[in-house]
Simulated scan of single mutants.
Amino acid sequence: MLKKYLKPLPLPAPADWGVLLLRVGMSLLMMQYGYAKLHNYLSGERGFADPIGIGEEASLVLTIFAEFFCSILLILGLAARLALIPLITTMLVAALIIHAQDPFDKQEHPILFLIPYLTLLLTGPGRYSLDKVLFG
């Protein structure tokens, strides 16, 4: 029954191009942050914030997973809604926990990623995605 509510509505062609642009554009921007963290991690730098109490390294690995690997899935439109969950969670933690005491200009950056991610969660990956090719 839940599957019925998760099916994306049919979109006209310009909207599908818009969803593709949003999906790929946001993912390419986010990948830059994830790649930098991945590079630092592979270089031996493990220091990172521990906002939810699971340890610095675990927090870093989960953030790298979201920002880099989930962004790749989102670019491809593969398991897009599932890939959005870690991205949304990471941006919520950044905005509401990491930058909770900071002025709005520090919270604004993760919120600017969060809004398109929530939009994509609602719309789905669109017609031009591997999800559409593989699962119809």
Rank of each mutant, 00 (worst) to 15 (best):
L76R: 02
F65A: 11
L6V: 12
N40G: 15
Y128T: 11
G126E: 04
Y41F: 15
F135L: 14
H39S: 14
L2D: 13
N40I: 00
K7H: 08
I97K: 09
Q32V: 14
F135I: 10
A79G: 15
I98H: 12
C70K: 02
G124N: 05
L21Q: 03
P110H: 11
I88D: 03
L9Q: 15
R81W: 03
K132C: 08
G34H: 08
F104V: 10
G47A: 15
L120H: 06
M31L: 11
L78R: 10
F48W: 11
D131M: 05
Y33L: 12
M91Y: 02
L112Q: 10
I85Y: 06
D131I: 02
A58G: 01
D50T: 10
L114D: 01
E57D: 13
S129P: 11
K106H: 12
D131L: 01
I97Y: 00
T63E: 02
Q32I: 13
P8C: 10
E57N: 10
E56M: 13
I52Q: 11
G25V: 06
G25W: 07
G126V: 07
Y117V: 03
L120T: 10
F65Q: 07
R127E: 11
T123Q: 08
S27H: 04
A95P: 03
D50E: 04
L42N: 06
E56D: 09
K4V: 12
T90V: 12
V24S: 07
G34A: 10
V133L: 15
M1G: 14
S71R: 05
L6N: 09
C70D: 01
L130E: 02
L112D: 08
F65P: 02
G18C: 06
I75E: 00
A13R: 11
G34P: 10
A100R: 14
R23V: 04
Y33E: 05
V133I: 15
P110G: 10
P125F: 02
E56F: 03
P51S: 07
A15H: 06
M26L: 12
M91S: 08
V61K: 09
I54Y: 09
T63M: 01
L62I: 08
K132L: 00
E57K: 10
L6T: 14
L92G: 03
P116V: 05
L76A: 12
A100V: 13
G124F: 03
L20G: 08
K7L: 12
